[in-house]
Design a protein around this nucleic acid. Sequence first.
RNA 1: GGCUCGGUGGCAGAGUGGUUAUGCAGCGGACUGCAACUCCGUAUACGCCGGUUCGAUUCCGACCCGAGCCUCCA
Length: 469
Amino acid sequence: MSASDNPNKHPLSVYNTLGGEKQRFVPRDPQRVTMYVCGPTVYNLAHIGNARPVVVFDVLFRLLRHLYPEVVYARNITDIDDKIIAAAQAGERSIDAVTDEFTAKYREDMAALNTLRPSLEPHATHNIEAMIELTETLVEKGHAYESAGHVLFAVQSMPDYGKLSGRSLEDMLAGARVEVADYKRYPGDFVLWKPAADNEPGWDSPWGRGRPGWHLECSAMIRAHLGDSIDIHGGGRDLIFPHHENEIAQSRCSHDGDFVHYWMHNAYLDMDGEKMSKSLGNVKTVRELLQHYRGEVLRFALLSAHYRSPLNFSGELLGQAESALGSLYNTLRDVRHIDVDPEAVELAGEAAFQALCDDLNTPGAISELHALARQLHKSQTPVEQAWLKARLLALGGLLGLLQQDPEAWMQGGVDDDGLDAAAIEEKIAARARAKKDKDFALADAIRAELLAEGVVLEDSREGTQWRRA
RNA sequence: GGCUCGGUGGCAGAGUGGUUAUGCAGCGGACUGCAACUCCGUAUACGCCGGUUCGAUUCCGACCCGAGCCUCCA
């Protein structure tokens, strides 16, 4: 039974890079959906661009969990790589010290964006044996060869190599930017296994002490942890070629099965209209941004555009995200005393849910959140308010948004300096007395004083409440 | 050069062969002691040129502009 066969579910469509079109999602096993997303190379802090696929596929993970009984989501930790070795040597530290530090920081940063931990986080170095086995199989089957201590994949041995990225071998070499190593039989061949220098980490193998090539770990770990075939494989657009193309080559030439059914790729982030790059000096780490914006604001900003569109990540975007998110929390604050059960909401009929089922249309879903908020403001009856609040929370939860205490959200911020709540309440009380005495000059002075501290007052019949601007 | 994807109002960003996207900011009004919040209303749009069509921002073609990839970058 697929989701589409269940009247209580809504069909999910995703854009499949393989085929270049939106397709109905049909899992191979509706009881157990499998998803793999390329994770970090742990040698430095994650930047906000790295966070986009993490947040996007987190939404997909949440959505799939609503649609299917079990979802196994694996995201690898690449803890062996040239850049890690370089970082360790530069810092005169051990490899482990580097990878442990940045694995921990990666988890902290992604948690701050309210992303769920994947079901599995396989480490490359824990799966070396599987990589060696995979390489041996490829050699046995005539798809790989040993040369000068390297083992290389022979791309010409695979008839439809290049299918994912939509290019032929001739096309790929036409650009002629390929630096041809003399140990390659064919310029497009790529490394499965390479020799390790004495001062580099290495593992014993049939080809001597060495370490894996870049693409190998994903193929080996997918097979080891998820099986020969999986439903969804995700990552950034830039990985389509060569990384994912080569994963396909490794996996399909070594074992039966079609490896991945749905390939999903997110577009890049720009920084103030320019590509984020180290040479431009405009790389922003998640950690840096968290100094100035709350994680949920960053998450909201990342979800404000469709994942396949480039998103210009600017201070203005973040300001808008903060305002928009604040208005939603403000709505929830007004009904904070109404108890609801978001679990009871049947999502299938919700427009926001349907938007997400249409290839993760997060901007569409967010607009529906605003529509619910507007209805909530206008509603006068507690029953209706409870119903709307439950829906807003349920749908927000699907996006990983709006799950914090609204009062705390409105009164909180990233800065710890400024007036504390008790001092603010005290001034509000003083202002209330002034208002009662019709001393509006004093009341306004107090309000202006608080505003200067970044505190905005909102009067109502029930009294005065405050929030941080 | 090859392959791929885009160009929507001040900004961000959906979507559609004919009907208000939405948000942020702006303007007008209601509410308020005045504000804020909220509500109501409102201006600004679909790169350019052709074609198909009763009708195109939406389909087709050309053009201009931009982006990504072309061996280790999300």
